[in-house]
Simulated assay, not measured.
Amino acid sequence: MEQHLWKHVQSIKSKTPLVHSMTNYVVMNNTANALLATGASPIMAHAKSEVGDMVALANATVINIGTLDEYWCEAMLLAAETAHTLDKPWVLDPVGAGATSFRDDILQELLRFKPTVIKGNASEIMALAQVNQETTKGADSTAKSNEAMDAAINIATKYGSLVCISGATDIITDGSQKIQIANGIPLMTKVTGMGCTASALVGAFIGTVENKTEAVATAMALLGIAGELAAKQSEGPGTLQLHLLDKLYNLSEKEFYGHIKISES
């Protein structure tokens, strides 16, 4: 798999996929800039009157429930249903799963439309599988990615989705195959919405790359490597954001393969 990943990075730049990102207020600017730096084209549309058309138009849709309200819930369900009906790839980012019953209820409704990819931290994935719901702390995880492995397998098997558990080591599974990516640094957790940025990049890659497992692996490795390299020029989380965008834009093949830490089982 590893030898194909740089080709996928280049395919984003050549194909400029349109990513319909129904994401939260906190991260819209961050994720839009990350998509642009990577080579994709972002659009953020939440109006019920147009989300169906946007899903049909876009190469992929990302639904991130970070800042929910009743109107957005209706729009997100309409987008998910349209994506499922049209067989268009879409990503579910279950931000804060397990924190409130309102949040959990909308997630269960969204899952009916079988996301192509579900990407969340360990606590969120465990909450989605309705196990150990004491591990959610807002949008942060209090569990390690490997602790959510059984939950991820259950979700992948039940919904036919790829599940990506983000953490110090990212884990991607379809219920049988397991890929681990150990790129990234702790400083990245001090920049708000870094996980949301990862989900947006996953959207770009699944909208372009036929092999969805490779697509998710490429997105997660790319962000982690860019973060590692950006940190070498950064004095803290503020400058990390700036250098991360630059590195997503100008990362070289040599840098990519010189830093990637990926394993399969």
Rank of each mutant, 00 (worst) to 15 (best):
Met1Phe: 10
Met1Ser: 08
Gln3Arg: 08
Leu5His: 09
Gln10Tyr: 03
Ser14Lys: 11
Lys15Asn: 15
Met22Trp: 00
Thr23Asn: 00
Thr23Phe: 04
Val27Tyr: 04
Asn29Phe: 12
Thr31Arg: 02
Thr31Ala: 04
Ala34Asp: 04
Leu36Gly: 05
Ala40Phe: 03
Glu50His: 02
Glu50Val: 02
Met54Val: 02
Met54Pro: 01
Ala56His: 08
Ala60Arg: 01
Val62Ile: 00
Ile63Trp: 03
Tyr71Trp: 08
Met76Lys: 04
Leu77Trp: 03
Leu77Glu: 04
Ala83Glu: 05
Leu92Asp: 00
Asp93Leu: 02
Val95Leu: 01
Gly96Asn: 00
Ala99Ser: 03
Thr100Asn: 06
Thr100Cys: 10
Arg103Thr: 03
Arg103Ala: 02
Asp105Thr: 11
Arg112His: 09
Phe113Arg: 05
Thr116Cys: 03
Ser123Thr: 06
Met126Asp: 11
Glu134Pro: 08
Thr136Gln: 07
Lys137Asp: 13
Ala139Glu: 11
Asp140Phe: 11
Ala143His: 15
Ser145Pro: 15
Ala156Cys: 06
Thr157Ser: 10
Ile165Asn: 09
Ile165Gln: 12
Gly184Ala: 13
Pro186Val: 12
Leu187Ala: 12
Lys190Ile: 07
Ala200Asp: 03
Leu201Trp: 02
Val209Met: 04
Asn211Arg: 03
Thr213Arg: 02
Glu214Pro: 06
Val216Arg: 08
Ala217Val: 10
Thr218Gln: 12
Ala219Gly: 13
Leu222Asn: 12
Ala226His: 14
Gly227Pro: 14
Leu240Pro: 13
Gln241Trp: 09
His243Ile: 11
Leu244Asp: 11
Lys247Glu: 15
Lys247Cys: 14
Asn250Val: 15
Leu251Thr: 14
Glu255Met: 14
Phe256Ala: 12
His259Asn: 12
Ile262Asp: 10
Glu264Asp: 15
Glu264Trp: 08
Ser265Phe: 09
